[in-house]
Computed example of a mutant assay.
Amino acid sequence: MSEMSARRRRRVAALLAALPLAAACASPPPPVPPPGEQARAISLPFDRYNFTPADLSVIERAEDLLVGDCMRSRGLAWETLPPSAEEDLEPPNRRRYGVVEPEVARRYGYHVAPDRPSVARRSAAGESRTASLSEQQRRAAYDERGGCLPRARARIGQGAPKVDSALFNQLITRTFEQSRREAEVVRVFRAWSACMRAEGWRYDDPLSAVADQRWLDGGPATEEEIRAARADERCKARTGLVAVWAAAERRLQEDAVRAHREAFEALKAAKDRQLETARTIIAAAR
């Protein structure tokens, strides 16, 4: 073999060896955008009585701190999870009317946007902790009879009125379905559908667009899906669909609150008491 051929082989080998390093040094994926103002602006009466993602973050943080204290009192390790930043948490009604954020439609189509950084870190830490627990730790933490987590939940719920959430869950579903049949909502659906046809898509309403089987294969958003989602979001903006639909649902929810005032007052009192207790626990741990 000539010296020239040997040198050429060494150069090719060096290039091939460098490929994984080049891939590792490639640009990281763009950061996940924060929830847009379009999603944050959707507010409904039932929000006052339900636990929002931000509320649940407070409750879960307090539970985790109590479990840590309980486990250590039993001579067992427990690594508390890092808290999620408030600005990274989902607005309560972000996907209620389908995709409403231009940036989410552009990046993810109809797929749910990935978790924001602090939420993703907490989730990953939780999975890692669960995987590393010994059988003794699992029993101490989760056993229904005297486990640290049931004890923590009982502590946070102490003093809160007992409520039956079945009626509330039924009313959430019922008022949402009723809102889709309100005359003004039917009209705006028609306007949105006509706008979508002009963009090359045939759907009767936004929920049928979200549920298109082409987007439900489990893979990442395709270019076709992204085009459809962007058209969907534009047509919502052009027709004022979200404002009309939310106004109809808001009216129906207000009627439901008036019709079941005692049940809703109990829900609000239970929610407020649990959040007050949870915040006290978190403040004491600082």
Results as ranks from 00 to 15, higher is better:
residue 277 T to H: 10
residue 165 S to I: 11
residue 285 A to C: 11
residue 224 E to D: 15
residue 177 E to A: 01
residue 71 M to C: 01
residue 17 A to T: 09
residue 186 V to H: 13
residue 139 R to V: 07
residue 285 A to Y: 13
residue 10 R to V: 04
residue 224 E to M: 10
residue 167 L to K: 11
residue 142 Y to F: 15
residue 193 S to H: 07
residue 52 T to V: 15
residue 36 G to I: 00
residue 54 A to F: 12
residue 114 P to K: 02
residue 15 L to H: 10
residue 155 R to M: 08
residue 197 R to D: 04
residue 193 S to Y: 10
residue 117 P to W: 13
residue 236 K to F: 05
residue 28 P to E: 06
residue 248 A to D: 07
residue 52 T to Y: 11
residue 128 S to H: 05
residue 269 A to D: 13
residue 266 A to D: 13
residue 88 D to P: 05
residue 9 R to I: 03
residue 125 A to V: 05
residue 220 P to Y: 12
residue 28 P to A: 01
residue 247 A to Y: 03
residue 102 P to G: 09
residue 272 D to A: 11
residue 18 A to S: 15
residue 280 T to I: 14
residue 75 G to R: 09
residue 65 L to D: 00
residue 30 P to A: 14
residue 110 Y to Q: 02
residue 201 W to K: 06
residue 60 E to T: 02
residue 215 W to N: 03
residue 21 L to R: 09
residue 55 D to K: 01
residue 93 N to A: 00
residue 281 I to R: 07
residue 66 L to R: 10
residue 174 R to K: 15
residue 78 W to Q: 05
residue 36 G to P: 01
residue 48 R to I: 10
residue 208 S to G: 13
residue 45 P to Y: 12
residue 29 P to A: 13
residue 197 R to I: 00
residue 257 V to S: 05
residue 234 R to T: 02
residue 246 A to P: 05
residue 108 Y to W: 00
residue 29 P to H: 13
residue 155 R to F: 08
residue 168 F to E: 03
residue 46 F to H: 08
residue 207 L to N: 14
residue 61 R to C: 01
residue 99 V to C: 01
residue 58 V to T: 12
residue 195 C to N: 04
residue 72 R to H: 11
residue 198 A to S: 13
